[in-house]
Amino acid sequence: MIVALASLAGVALFLWPYLGLGPFPAAPALAVAGGAVVLLAAIEAAARRLDTRLLALLAALAAVDAALRLVLVTGIGGFSPIFFLILCAGFVFGPTFGFLTGATALLVSALATGGVGPWLPYQMFGAGWVGMFAGLVGLRWHSLPALAVAGLLSGFAFGLVLDLWDWSYLRGAPGAGFTPGLPPAAVIAAFGRFYLVTSALYDAFRAFGNVLMVLLLGPPVLAAMQRLKARFTLVVE
């Protein structure tokens, strides 16, 4: 519920530059700051309901992701090892936990690697949605191939969504950027051009990297998470 509300705010954060509102000068700065505040508040509100063990696991998964980013710095193209754990966490512990893992993983790794930038709230929402998506998939189809497909789709979707942020910097550039007042079809065509040129190939590395990691590393990591989940039942005789 909290995550759903926060996600709505997230959608607004990504789309407001394209809704034809007259942009007032301080808007971009306020959007970034506002997005960050909404996210932190949502994380806190949702984390408040978590068992300490899950909260610590959440923080820990974020730390592991940060360490992976330190060690493997960047992969090839858009491939990044960090999505794998986010996918697994969502898949095993559900959509809310998946969203939290995604958002905090990006936050902690940005803090640990000195990568805090104005993109951070956008990335946090994007990665949160990846985890949420994996959680929803896990509720319906609980199998490794399903998680691999979720990794594939979310690999592209993450890039597509984040391009909405990149693209806003080209606002007003005719042909390349978003120009207010154009019909929606033309806007989508322009965005499609931008996406194909800048990101499609790059995102393919992320998407297929996710699939590969899920298939190669998924079973033991999912099993370890399941074992942790098993701790949540206590029988007193």
């Binding site: 063990r53 701790r231 039942t233 206590l234 007193v236 005789e237």
Partner: peptide
């Protein structure tokens, strides 16, 4: 044990007057 680890427990105990279960 048992609150962090889960599992199955029988019997009981006290520490400083607090019930462990």
């Amino acid at each position: 044990v048992p609150h962090f680890y889960g599992g199955r427990i029988k019997g009981g105990g006290e520490v400083a007057g607090l019930d462990l279960l």
